[in-house]
């Protein structure tokens, strides 16, 4: 099951105790602020989760996998995420949870 903004808001108004409206708005703003900074070229570091930042990619020659024709992939920016050390460590230590999953990479 996925965690959504609605679920995060619910957690806030149930466990921490705020109005549903405040909770929803705060969750929205939380992600908006992170988004705005990434777009502005700022690195956003959230302890416990990791860092998000934008990186520019140069134009490069790629290939259309359907037609196999070479094509130019335009220069663009991408969002990079680097997991924080504590999160990596946690996932590593509790890996038995993952036993049912296959290699998704």
């Amino acid at each position: 099951m996925s965690v959504t903004k609605a679920e995060l808001a619910e957690l806030i108004y149930k466990n921490i105790g705020f109005s549903k409206k405040d909770a929803t708005e705060i969750v929205d703003t939380f992600f908006d602020l992170i988004k705005t900074d990434i777009i502005a070229g700022e690195k956003v570091k959230i302890k416990g989760i990791g860092a998000f930042y934008a990186r520019s990619k140069k134009e490069r020659l790629g290939r259309n996998p359907q037609t196999d024709r070479p094509m130019m992939i335009s220069a663009r920016k991408v969002v990079v995420y680097r997991a924080g050390t504590s999160l990596k460590k946690l996932l590593k230590e509790n890996k038995q949870i993952a036993s049912s999953q296959d290699d998704g990479a």
């Binding site: 996925s2 965690v3 959504t4 903004k5 679920e7 995060l8 466990n15 416990g48």
Partner: peptide, 23 residues
């Protein structure tokens, strides 16, 4: 609240749940 959001996100990942934030 911020710590609550972050904890919930970490918990979700630790349980192999996906976090999907529209936008």
């Amino acid at each position: 609240i911020v710590n609550g959001i972050i904890e919930k996100m970490i918990d979700a990942l630790n349980n192999n749940d996906r976090i999907e934030i529209r936008g």
